[in-house]
Design a protein around this nucleic acid. Sequence first.
DNA 1: CTGTATCCGGTTTGATACTG
DNA 2: CAGTATCAAACCGGATACAG
Lengths: 94, 94
Amino acid sequence: MGVLIIETLGDRTLRFSELRNGVEGISHKMLTQNLRMPERSGLVEREGHPTVPPRVEYTLTEPGWALRATVDGVCDWTHRYLGRIESPRRRLDA
Amino acid sequence: MGVLIIETLGDRTLRFSELRNGVEGISHKMLTQNLRMPERSGLVEREGHPTVPPRVEYTLTEPGWALRATVDGVCDWTHRYLGRIESPRRRLDA
DNA sequence: CTGTATCCGGTTTGATACTG
DNA sequence: CAGTATCAAACCGGATACAG
């Protein structure tokens, strides 16, 4: 799930709410939580603007970019093989 | 966690109990469970020998191999960047 | 040896309400 | 808008017992 954030954030700097829309389906709380960890790990940079209303922007750092690159590798794999994979979510087959 | 299985199984065909030792720390139940999914997805092939005692061997399929390759990419990332990352497990810093 | 079923405690999550 | 706190529900993994 944190991976989706990395992916989404990869394109460009995003605000909290933009990120929230981008990741789609993630709850308010989960987004906050899943941002703290990569933030502390130096994968994501958080920049808060003390304006009214508040604006907080999140950006991928260099290690974050590198991680995204590897994650893209997994995505590529998915694209190549997903067709051949019977989804486990499908109802139990006969 | 299923990833560790893919990694371990990558080297060669393994029996259930061998896999259990290889993944180390995984419980009986988890191994069974985490084998079913990639098995149904066609990442792992299960071959049971109707002997006494039973012997079941698990092998990585071609899609499984490809996945393992991408996972290795993530491992590489870890090796390169782990040093720069303050572990979130560290006690809260001042 | 390999595998399934059950119970049970800990973690995680979404909903909601509230703050600056 | 961005974030924290709280609470109940859902989920998950380990332990255990049992079966083929």
